[in-house]
């Protein structure tokens, strides 16, 4: 049996959660105050995921960079692979919030989308 101590990030409470697990099987989750905590702890131990936010190079726009995010979470261990793709991406203005800047980033099946409008100049 393995044991992991986690800080829940579901809300600003930051509950200290202890998870006992064996392989892919969760044996117990303790210390959480709500269902979000329970779900977070299970995911965090077995399949940790993150949203990656960064910027993408944009040409012909009012700004030199357009902020972006992965449209949903990606596996935590794909963060740097994802960043590598983002750092080499280039788009042209104009761009609107939600526009896909990179498709299927790092084979995660998740798109990188713009998080603000950048008008062309």
């Amino acid at each position: 049996m393995e044991k992991r101590n986690l800080t829940c990030i579901g809300c600003p409470m930051g509950c200290q959660i202890t998870v006992e697990f064996e392989g892919e099987e969760i044996l117990s989750v303790k210390g959480n105050t709500c269902a979000i905590g329970d779900k977070y702890a299970r995911n965090e131990v077995l399949h940790p995921e993150r949203t990656v936010t960064s910027t993408v190079y944009i040409s012909g726009g009012k700004l030199p960079r357009v902020p972006c995010k992965t449209a949903s979470n990606i596996p935590k261990d794909k963060i740097f692979e994802c960043m590598k793709v983002i750092n080499h991406a280039a788009v042209k203005a104009p761009v609107k919030i939600g526009d896909v800047l990179v498709e299927d980033v790092a084979g995660t099946g998740v798109n990188v989308v713009a998080t603000r409008n950048v008008e062309a100049v």
Binding site: T55, V56, Y57, R65, N87, H88, A89, A90
Partner: peptide, 8 residues
């Protein structure tokens, strides 16, 4: 600068 692509 922040992005690889701009250095390329």
């Amino acid at each position: 600068k922040s992005k690889e692509v701009e250095k390329e």
